[in-house]
């Protein structure tokens, strides 16, 4: 069954959607969208390093993404606003990554594949990495769920309950880097944040609890992945951007439906 590239693509999409749906809720609640961008764009630098030193793409992207996350966390609140800091770091990482890629001698790489994903070329090994990474992220977030949620609400309340908000921030930083690393193949670095934000945002109007929102976001992410794959196959469009487009349509529908629900009381 795994011999079929479409089946592998579908499984890869589902794996990424589950992790990004759950983690994406925290990205939305904590307003970390730009943080996600910075982490994702740093991954291109990781890709260049991996190719230069013949490491696995996953390892290189993970390493540089984690470093980027730590860098942002440690610099935040110093001299620049988070907004400016992330703007500098995210684009700097992307630019340096693209420059670094151009230095690679003799290797012609499919840059577009890393920027926008290449889900149809996912192999068995990739599939294994994607599902292990996703399981790690979902497991980690569920394990720290209450602490993460408390720290998200208020750092002071977290402290008063004996939780270290700083540690929870690191947990999220690491989980984000893992999602980025496993999602490169699927949607590419430029659209990873979309798969984090859009399903979570689409789930919001129908959720009364944080757990409900995370579950629904995962489901909507899976629907967007499979739907996007199907549409891409029928219309012969690039798979990654099509998945994000479908997710965006789901968001529009969800927002409209949410309005209707509220209007009816």
């Amino acid at each position: 069954m795994l011999d079929d590239f479409l089946v592998r693509a579908a499984l890869a999409g589902v794996g990424v959607a589950l992790a990004s749906g759950v983690l994406g809720c925290f990205v939305v609640w904590r307003r970390m969208a730009y943080f996600g961008d910075a982490t994702a764009q740093a991954a291109i630098l990781g890709v260049a390093l991996s190719l230069a030193f013949s490491l696995s793409i996953f390892a290189g992207a993970l390493l540089v993404s984690v470093l980027m996350g730590l860098l942002v966390s440690s610099l935040s609140g110093r001299h620049y606003s988070m907004d400016t800091l992330l703007g500098v770091l995210a684009h700097a990482a992307l630019a340096f990554g693209l420059v670094a890629v151009s230095f690679l001698p003799g290797i012609r790489i499919d840059l577009e594949g890393y920027l926008f994903g290449d889900i149809l070329s996912v192999g068995r090994q990739d599939l294994l990495v994607i599902w292990l990474g996703s399981a790690l992220v979902v497991g980690l977030v569920l394990f720290r769920w209450s602490a993460l949620l408390t720290a998200t609400l208020s750092e002071d309340l977290a402290h008063a309950s004996g939780i270290q908000p700083r540690r929870e921030q690191l947990v999220l930083t690491f989980a984000l880097a893992v999602v980025v690393a496993v999602a490169i193949k699927v949607v590419g670095v430029l659209l990873i944040t979309a798969m984090l934000i859009i399903p979570a945002a689409a789930a919001r109007p129908f959720s009364r609890t944080p757990e409900g929102m995370a579950g629904l976001a995962a489901v909507l992410g899976v629907v967007a992945s499979l739907g996007g794959l199907r549409v891409a196959y029928v219309l012969d469009t690039p798979a990654g951007p099509t998945m994000v487009a479908v997710a965006a349509l789901l968001f529009a529908l969800a927002t409209a439906a949410g309005r209707l629900l509220r209007a009816r009381g």
């Binding site: 939305v28 609640w29 904590r30 307003r31 998200t152 609400l153 208020s154 309340l157 979570a200 945002a201 919001r204 959720s207 009364r208 609890t209 944080p210 409900g212 929102m213």
Partner: peptide
């Protein structure tokens, strides 16, 4: 307590 409007919480 600044509750982000995207966070559903009873």
């Amino acid at each position: 307590l600044q509750v982000d409007p995207t966070l559903p919480l009873t």
